[in-house]
Amino acid sequence: MSQITLTGIAKAYGTSVAIAPMDLTVADGEFLTLLGPSGCGKTTLMRMIAGITLPDQGAIRINGRDMAALPPEKRNVGLVFQSYALFPHMTVAANVGFGLKMRGIARDAAAERVRAALALVDLEPLAARYPRELSGGQQQRVALARAIVIEPDVLLLDEPLSNLDAKLREHLREDLRNLQQRLRVTAIYVTHDQAEAMALADRIIVMDKGRIVEEGAPVDLYRAPQTRFAAEFLGQTNVVAVTAAGLLPWNTGVAGPADGMVSIRPEDIAVTPALDGAGRVLSLTFLGPAVEYRIDIGGTVLRARDSGTGTAILPQGTQVDLTLRVPPHPLQGVA
């Protein structure tokens, strides 16, 4: 039930710009993911929305209401800190119950909600422990429960799953998405992990150096990125220069601007052994469900991923032919 609107929001620390003037709207109930390299300003952006870092300029509105004059405690924004920020002198239950206590919720009702929140993150048995008695992943889940239990209008998650093992991560990822949809809470989720971003998000924002580089739904952003940065950040890709004649290095014609760049995902390249093939396998990596080849073709090195089960693994030095499963995707504005 909450729409977030940022207009011209900016923040600098001294002379270093953390967030360049930025506009962003998050729709009610939307799950937005911020994706970007370390230091690009993701945390800064979240902290400004939560009200614990003040922007240098611009306005933040939640449901049209200007937040400038509202201190963090009046915003009803749940923030899961990247550093967890658990209260070391409180048990897990007291940590999770803190926000309810601040809201004057009756003891019994609060205890029940704490229990439910802890059950959600699989931590019920550890309710009486102190944070120092928990593993990093368990602490992270307490932080998550603590932010969820207050039923915030906006849920901000700063890499909330970064410390969990792959299995728990996937499990919690689904729970989180279900929970978000059940509560219909507007969520912004920060991650480094592009797979996680794509699995969770309605929309992904790719950031770099305090700016929004590109945004879009996961499918569009993955399959048809506009920028080289987004193409490379969202999974692996081959960025290949198109010759002036509009040809790829191996003399295949492409649609799109001559003299530009195209992005070809490794899984879109089919590799077939051919004695007179133009390509040669430089090296290969067995990844389990797929095999990744580095292939030299006309002096350009490409990554290709073959997921065909049952096909033979091609040894190093094999001559191969390449076919593209989809037309290569042109990138804008890169040299």
């Binding site: 614990i52 963090p72 920020a85 658990l86 209260f87 601040m102 603590r146």
Partner: peptide
Amino acid sequence: IQKDIILAARTLGATPLTAFWRIQIPL
């Protein structure tokens, strides 16, 4: 005391004074 701990209390609804009594003083 780690700054984020106090800020976490604030985002959970504590005024600066409450955060002082419930977080800073005990720690």
